[in-house]
Amino acid sequence: MNKTVNQKAWFFVIPVFVLVAFNAIIPLMTVVNYAFQETFGNNVFMWEGTRWFKQIMLSERFHASLGRQFLFTFIILFIQIPLGIAIALTMPKEGIGVPVCLVLMSMPLLIPWNVVGAMWNIFALPDIGFLGHSLNALGFDYNFTQQIGDAWFTTILMDVWHWTSLVVLLSYAGLRSIQPAYYQAAEIDGASRWAIFTKIELPKMKKVLTIAILLRFMDSFMIYTEPFVLTGGGPGNATAFLSIDLVKMALGQFDLGPAAAMSLIYFFIVLLVCWVFYTLMMRNEEKS
């Protein structure tokens, strides 16, 4: 077949370029601009080179919030992935229970993030909140606004409540795509329930689980709204995750240079982790 050359085809592509430029490249470049310069307002900029990057990389405050961020992300992945799979396994496979479960499961995902934060804030208040009051009535000394452990507990619980459903829905979809013949074949072999899970269900769910882990990693690593509304990063800096710390630096202290450098470092960490994880999973895929 002969391909014709028609430069007018660029008109189909240009709108996309313009759109991407406005919503991604230009804002990002502004941040890059700030990251290498110092400004005192009035549009006066002074070249600072890599000074802000060095400052952030060596700052204890950044190390602390990065550490908190990784700890938080690992804890919620550790809870949500197994819990999500477990719930998906117990969900009904046919009948009226399927739509009921699916709708119930999607509910937390449909609630706006700041509403989730506000809801849990009220829910967990030690004096009037249902959770906080009940825990205290049961004899636990619970106060998420003052005790670090309680603040972490509440933040993690909130995130598990909000996001486990995503893992459930993805796992459920993965499970449903396994043909019944696999289960029959395993039954004929006399395989145990555990063997069916590890030898059939898990390998067959591998792809959706990769997606689930990636999505949950990215979202939890960039979490902002919910802990901001719930704890505001407190008590002290106990739940000041990377994004909360970043906003504090940029808008609270108006340290635009270091904040811009920090956001770029932040961005590259997310990108790097996703790339490493995805490459590892895909390499595994090719091998097997």
Binding site: A181, A185, K199, I200, P203, S288
Partner: peptide
């Protein structure tokens, strides 16, 4: 079966 049923990671 009609589908090729084997243990995927064996």
């Amino acid at each position: 079966y009609q589908q090729f049923i084997n243990y995927p990671n064996f």
